[in-house]
Amino acid sequence: MHVPDGYLDAATTAGTAAVAAAGVALALRGARRELDERTAPMAGLTAAFVFAVQMMNFPIAYGTSGHLIGGALTAVLVGPWTAVLCMTVVLLVQALVFADGGLTALGTNVTLMGLVAVGVGYGAFRLLRAVLPAGRTGVLAAAGVGAFLSVPVAALVFVGLFGLGGVADVSLTSVAAAMGGVHLLIGLGEAAITVAVLGAVLAVRPDLVRGARHLQRATTLAPRPATAGRPAAPTAVDAR
């Protein structure tokens, strides 16, 4: 659901572009804390993953299928700032290379799918993670709810923007009801896919899930070094 050119008037488009630019600037600073100098290669590969997984079709129900938008999932996996950068880069490539989403509407799309979806998804995830019992189930439930909420909230923000600067005189409540209703269903799909993917990563490499770092102490295995390939320090047992 990329907003094309011409849906919102010039003032609203410029406003969302300014919001998006400020958000991306903040994310560029924040991502350095999450990934230090690895920012560019890691965020680039994560963006390539988001881009690829958006091509994957998941069956939802009654013959319909959906694909992941991925804001909440990426935020839980690599942290919210890096997730904002990944979504921004994916949206930029989709707009420039595939004409998917308008060029002048890029700021609007980054605001909706980068800032709002990631912010709401990750915010709800952190809130619920604090409340729910710690553990795999708690993390998955929190991420699922975050992913679910991120979609209809982003849709409602779009309806709000359309009310501010839309080019048609519509009754906002009916548009909000229609968009909200459809996106509640899409949100359910997003939540199901997010939980399935996150559960799989947690089972194999829990150390890669940034949002589940607090679980790591429970494992008896030595954590893998952050950058693979560094030789492990010899231990007393090895030095026999």
Binding site: R38, P41, M42, G44, L45, T46, A48, F49, A52, V53, M56, N57, F58, P59, I60, A61, S65, L68, L77, A192, I193, V195, A196, V197, L198, G199, A200, V201, A203, V204, R205, L208, T227, A228, G229
Partner: peptide, 30 residues
């Protein structure tokens, strides 16, 4: 991929795609 149950297969597929992408990123960075 027909029913919701297929998520049990497709979820791990996407999950391992993430792990492979992330590990590739680490190798590229090194």
């Amino acid at each position: 991929a027909r029913r919701v149950g297929a998520l049990k297969v497709l979820g791990p597929a996407a999950g391992s795609l993430f792990i492979r992408s992330y590990e590739r990123g680490e190798r590229v960075h090194l």
